[in-house]
Amino acid sequence: MIVFTKPACYNRPLGVPMRTPLAIKGIGDRLVISLPQGEWTTILPDLMHAIDERGDFFKGAKVALQVDDRELGPAQLVALRQALAQREITLWALLATDESTCAAASKLGIDIDVGSPSHQTEEDDYVFDSDLPGDEAILVERTLRSGQRLRHPGHVIVFGDVNPGSEIVAGGHILIWGRLRGTVHAGAAGDESATVCALDMMPTQLRIASHIAVSPKRRGRPHPEVAFVRDGQLIAETWENSERS
Protein backbone atom coordinates (compact mmCIF):
# COMPACT_ATOMS: atom_id res chain seq x y z
CA MET A 1 0.00 0.00 0.00
CA ILE A 2 1.34 3.40 -0.95
CA VAL A 3 0.21 6.47 0.89
CA PHE A 4 0.44 9.40 -1.44
CA THR A 5 2.62 12.21 -0.27
CA LYS A 6 0.93 15.54 -0.32
CA PRO A 7 2.85 18.22 -2.16
CA ALA A 8 4.70 20.44 0.28
CA CYS A 9 3.29 23.55 -1.28
CA TYR A 10 0.10 24.11 -3.15
CA ASN A 11 -1.99 27.12 -3.84
CA ARG A 12 -4.75 25.99 -1.54
CA PRO A 13 -4.39 24.96 2.09
CA LEU A 14 -4.36 21.21 2.42
CA GLY A 15 -6.00 19.08 5.03
CA VAL A 16 -8.81 21.59 5.47
CA PRO A 17 -12.09 20.45 4.01
CA MET A 18 -12.68 22.85 1.14
CA ARG A 19 -16.02 21.64 -0.03
CA THR A 20 -19.32 22.28 1.60
CA PRO A 21 -21.28 19.06 1.47
CA LEU A 22 -23.67 19.21 -1.43
CA ALA A 23 -25.51 16.25 -2.86
CA ILE A 24 -25.18 16.37 -6.62
CA LYS A 25 -26.61 13.82 -8.95
CA GLY A 26 -26.73 13.64 -12.70
CA ILE A 27 -29.44 12.83 -15.20
CA GLY A 28 -27.91 12.75 -18.64
CA ASP A 29 -26.07 16.03 -19.13
CA ARG A 30 -27.98 17.70 -16.34
CA LEU A 31 -27.34 17.98 -12.64
CA VAL A 32 -29.63 17.85 -9.64
CA ILE A 33 -28.48 19.52 -6.43
CA SER A 34 -30.20 18.53 -3.20
CA LEU A 35 -30.12 21.30 -0.67
CA PRO A 36 -29.31 20.59 2.96
CA GLN A 37 -31.74 21.41 5.75
CA GLY A 38 -31.78 24.90 7.17
CA GLU A 39 -32.92 28.46 6.72
CA TRP A 40 -33.21 29.67 3.12
CA THR A 41 -31.37 32.90 3.97
CA THR A 42 -28.25 30.91 4.94
CA ILE A 43 -28.66 28.16 2.39
CA LEU A 44 -28.59 30.44 -0.65
CA PRO A 45 -25.19 32.03 0.18
CA ASP A 46 -23.92 28.59 1.22
CA LEU A 47 -24.99 27.15 -2.11
CA MET A 48 -23.31 29.94 -4.09
CA HIS A 49 -20.21 29.55 -1.97
CA ALA A 50 -20.20 25.82 -2.64
CA ILE A 51 -20.57 26.42 -6.37
CA ASP A 52 -17.78 29.01 -6.39
CA GLU A 53 -15.51 26.61 -4.52
CA ARG A 54 -15.83 24.09 -7.28
CA GLY A 55 -14.33 26.48 -9.78
CA ASP A 56 -15.85 26.20 -13.22
CA PHE A 57 -17.12 22.68 -12.76
CA PHE A 58 -20.69 23.96 -12.99
CA LYS A 59 -20.01 26.51 -15.71
CA GLY A 60 -22.53 26.16 -18.50
CA ALA A 61 -24.39 23.42 -16.64
CA LYS A 62 -28.12 22.95 -16.49
CA VAL A 63 -29.05 22.49 -12.89
CA ALA A 64 -32.17 21.40 -11.05
CA LEU A 65 -32.54 22.21 -7.37
CA GLN A 66 -34.22 19.82 -5.01
CA VAL A 67 -35.86 22.08 -2.45
CA ASP A 68 -38.34 19.50 -1.07
CA ASP A 69 -41.05 21.09 1.04
CA ARG A 70 -39.52 24.54 1.39
CA GLU A 71 -41.85 27.44 0.82
CA LEU A 72 -40.33 29.83 -1.69
CA GLY A 73 -41.89 32.96 -3.13
CA PRO A 74 -41.33 34.46 -6.60
CA ALA A 75 -38.82 37.02 -5.26
CA GLN A 76 -36.65 34.31 -3.75
CA LEU A 77 -36.77 32.27 -6.94
CA VAL A 78 -35.83 35.26 -9.09
CA ALA A 79 -32.87 35.98 -6.78
CA LEU A 80 -31.83 32.33 -7.00
CA ARG A 81 -32.05 32.26 -10.76
CA GLN A 82 -30.06 35.48 -11.08
CA ALA A 83 -27.36 34.27 -8.71
CA LEU A 84 -27.01 31.10 -10.78
CA ALA A 85 -27.06 33.00 -14.07
CA GLN A 86 -24.16 35.14 -12.86
CA ARG A 87 -22.17 31.92 -12.61
CA GLU A 88 -23.30 30.86 -16.09
CA ILE A 89 -25.55 28.16 -14.70
CA THR A 90 -29.05 27.62 -16.05
CA LEU A 91 -31.74 26.85 -13.52
CA TRP A 92 -33.48 24.14 -15.40
CA ALA A 93 -35.99 22.93 -12.85
CA LEU A 94 -37.09 23.07 -9.27
CA LEU A 95 -38.00 19.87 -7.48
CA ALA A 96 -40.47 21.05 -4.93
CA THR A 97 -43.33 19.44 -3.06
CA ASP A 98 -44.77 22.63 -1.62
CA GLU A 99 -47.68 23.82 -3.73
CA SER A 100 -47.09 27.55 -3.43
CA THR A 101 -43.44 27.07 -4.42
CA CYS A 102 -44.51 25.03 -7.44
CA ALA A 103 -46.99 27.74 -8.42
CA ALA A 104 -44.34 30.47 -8.12
CA ALA A 105 -41.88 28.42 -10.17
CA SER A 106 -44.31 27.73 -13.00
CA LYS A 107 -45.22 31.43 -13.11
CA LEU A 108 -41.55 32.22 -13.66
CA GLY A 109 -41.28 29.57 -16.35
CA ILE A 110 -39.09 27.26 -14.27
CA ASP A 111 -39.81 23.63 -14.93
CA ILE A 112 -41.17 21.69 -11.97
CA ASP A 113 -41.53 18.37 -13.68
CA VAL A 114 -38.34 16.45 -14.47
CA GLY A 115 -39.87 13.05 -14.63
CA SER A 116 -41.09 14.02 -11.16
CA PRO A 117 -38.30 12.73 -8.95
CA SER A 118 -39.97 14.53 -6.08
CA HIS A 119 -42.82 12.10 -6.33
CA GLN A 120 -40.57 9.16 -6.92
CA THR A 121 -41.51 6.16 -8.94
CA GLU A 122 -39.48 2.96 -9.01
CA GLU A 123 -37.64 3.94 -12.15
CA ASP A 124 -36.66 7.27 -10.68
CA ASP A 125 -35.33 5.46 -7.64
CA TYR A 126 -32.91 3.74 -9.94
CA VAL A 127 -31.75 7.02 -11.41
CA PHE A 128 -31.46 9.00 -8.23
CA ASP A 129 -30.35 6.48 -5.66
CA SER A 130 -26.94 5.97 -7.20
CA ASP A 131 -24.40 6.96 -4.60
CA LEU A 132 -22.19 8.66 -7.16
CA PRO A 133 -22.74 11.91 -9.00
CA GLY A 134 -23.53 11.29 -12.61
CA ASP A 135 -24.88 7.94 -13.57
CA GLU A 136 -23.49 8.06 -17.05
CA ALA A 137 -19.98 7.25 -18.08
CA ILE A 138 -18.20 8.22 -21.23
CA LEU A 139 -15.73 6.01 -23.00
CA VAL A 140 -12.76 7.66 -24.67
CA GLU A 141 -11.07 5.32 -27.09
CA ARG A 142 -7.86 7.16 -27.76
CA THR A 143 -4.81 8.62 -26.12
CA LEU A 144 -5.31 11.95 -24.39
CA ARG A 145 -2.40 14.13 -25.40
CA SER A 146 -0.81 17.21 -23.87
CA GLY A 147 -3.21 20.15 -23.90
CA GLN A 148 -6.34 18.02 -24.24
CA ARG A 149 -8.90 18.38 -21.46
CA LEU A 150 -11.87 16.21 -20.70
CA ARG A 151 -14.70 17.19 -18.37
CA HIS A 152 -17.67 15.04 -17.59
CA PRO A 153 -20.18 15.11 -14.74
CA GLY A 154 -20.30 11.30 -14.64
CA HIS A 155 -17.62 8.62 -14.83
CA VAL A 156 -14.80 8.66 -17.34
CA ILE A 157 -13.23 5.60 -18.93
CA VAL A 158 -10.18 6.01 -21.13
CA PHE A 159 -9.08 3.17 -23.33
CA GLY A 160 -5.61 4.52 -24.06
CA ASP A 161 -2.95 6.59 -22.37
CA VAL A 162 -3.36 9.85 -20.50
CA ASN A 163 -0.19 11.75 -21.35
CA PRO A 164 1.50 14.44 -19.28
CA GLY A 165 -0.05 17.85 -19.86
CA SER A 166 -3.57 16.47 -20.31
CA GLU A 167 -6.35 16.75 -17.77
CA ILE A 168 -9.49 14.83 -16.84
CA VAL A 169 -12.13 16.18 -14.47
CA ALA A 170 -14.96 13.81 -13.65
CA GLY A 171 -17.87 13.90 -11.24
CA GLY A 172 -17.47 10.17 -10.61
CA HIS A 173 -14.82 7.50 -11.07
CA ILE A 174 -11.94 7.67 -13.55
CA LEU A 175 -10.73 4.43 -15.12
CA ILE A 176 -7.67 4.39 -17.33
CA TRP A 177 -6.92 1.28 -19.32
CA GLY A 178 -3.43 2.47 -20.12
CA ARG A 179 -0.77 4.72 -18.64
CA LEU A 180 -1.85 7.60 -16.47
CA ARG A 181 0.65 10.47 -16.68
CA GLY A 182 -1.54 13.58 -16.74
CA THR A 183 -3.65 15.32 -14.11
CA VAL A 184 -6.90 13.68 -13.03
CA HIS A 185 -9.65 14.82 -10.68
CA ALA A 186 -12.24 12.22 -9.71
CA GLY A 187 -15.30 13.10 -7.64
CA ALA A 188 -14.77 16.71 -8.67
CA ALA A 189 -18.09 17.79 -7.20
CA GLY A 190 -17.01 16.64 -3.78
CA ASP A 191 -17.63 12.90 -3.85
CA GLU A 192 -15.02 11.21 -1.67
CA SER A 193 -16.10 7.72 -2.67
CA ALA A 194 -14.82 8.25 -6.20
CA THR A 195 -11.76 6.28 -7.26
CA VAL A 196 -9.09 6.47 -9.92
CA CYS A 197 -7.87 3.25 -11.50
CA ALA A 198 -5.04 2.87 -13.99
CA LEU A 199 -2.92 0.09 -15.39
CA ASP A 200 0.15 2.23 -14.78
CA MET A 201 -0.47 4.98 -12.26
CA MET A 202 2.01 7.85 -12.43
CA PRO A 203 -0.20 10.96 -12.63
CA THR A 204 1.32 14.44 -12.61
CA GLN A 205 -1.26 15.17 -9.96
CA LEU A 206 -4.12 13.13 -8.62
CA ARG A 207 -7.19 14.63 -7.00
CA ILE A 208 -10.20 12.98 -5.46
CA ALA A 209 -12.86 15.39 -4.17
CA SER A 210 -10.82 17.91 -2.14
CA HIS A 211 -7.73 15.73 -1.74
CA ILE A 212 -4.64 16.39 -3.78
CA ALA A 213 -1.58 14.22 -4.18
CA VAL A 214 1.42 13.79 -6.41
CA SER A 215 2.82 10.41 -7.40
CA PRO A 216 5.64 9.05 -5.29
CA LYS A 217 8.74 7.82 -7.11
CA ARG A 218 8.06 4.50 -8.70
CA ARG A 219 9.86 1.45 -7.42
CA GLY A 220 9.88 -1.54 -9.69
CA ARG A 221 7.57 -2.47 -12.50
CA PRO A 222 4.24 -0.77 -13.12
CA HIS A 223 1.18 -2.63 -11.98
CA PRO A 224 -2.53 -1.81 -12.02
CA GLU A 225 -3.45 0.41 -9.11
CA VAL A 226 -6.53 1.95 -7.61
CA ALA A 227 -6.50 5.25 -5.73
CA PHE A 228 -9.17 6.24 -3.21
CA VAL A 229 -9.72 8.23 -0.06
CA ARG A 230 -9.59 6.46 3.27
CA ASP A 231 -9.66 8.27 6.62
CA GLY A 232 -9.07 11.58 4.92
CA GLN A 233 -6.00 10.35 3.10
CA LEU A 234 -5.40 9.57 -0.56
CA ILE A 235 -4.21 6.02 -0.90
CA ALA A 236 -3.13 3.96 -3.89
CA GLU A 237 -3.12 0.19 -3.71
CA THR A 238 -2.09 -2.36 -6.25
CA TRP A 239 -5.08 -4.03 -7.75
CA GLU A 240 -4.09 -7.50 -6.49
CA ASN A 241 -3.76 -6.34 -2.88
CA SER A 242 -6.71 -4.03 -2.89
CA GLU A 243 -8.97 -4.47 0.12
CA ARG A 244 -11.81 -2.84 -1.71
CA SER A 245 -14.29 -5.23 -3.16
Binding site: R142, R145, S146, G147, Q148, N163, P164, G165
Partner: peptide
Amino acid sequence: VRDADRIIGLIE
Protein backbone atom coordinates in the same frame (compact mmCIF):
# COMPACT_ATOMS: atom_id res chain seq x y z
CA VAL B 1 8.43 15.63 -26.05
CA ARG B 2 5.58 17.39 -24.25
CA ASP B 3 5.25 19.87 -27.11
CA ALA B 4 5.46 17.09 -29.69
CA ASP B 5 2.60 15.34 -27.89
CA ARG B 6 0.52 18.51 -28.06
CA ILE B 7 1.30 18.86 -31.77
CA ILE B 8 0.29 15.26 -32.45
CA GLY B 9 -3.02 15.98 -30.72
CA LEU B 10 -3.57 19.06 -32.89
CA ILE B 11 -2.64 17.21 -36.07
CA GLU B 12 -5.05 14.42 -35.23
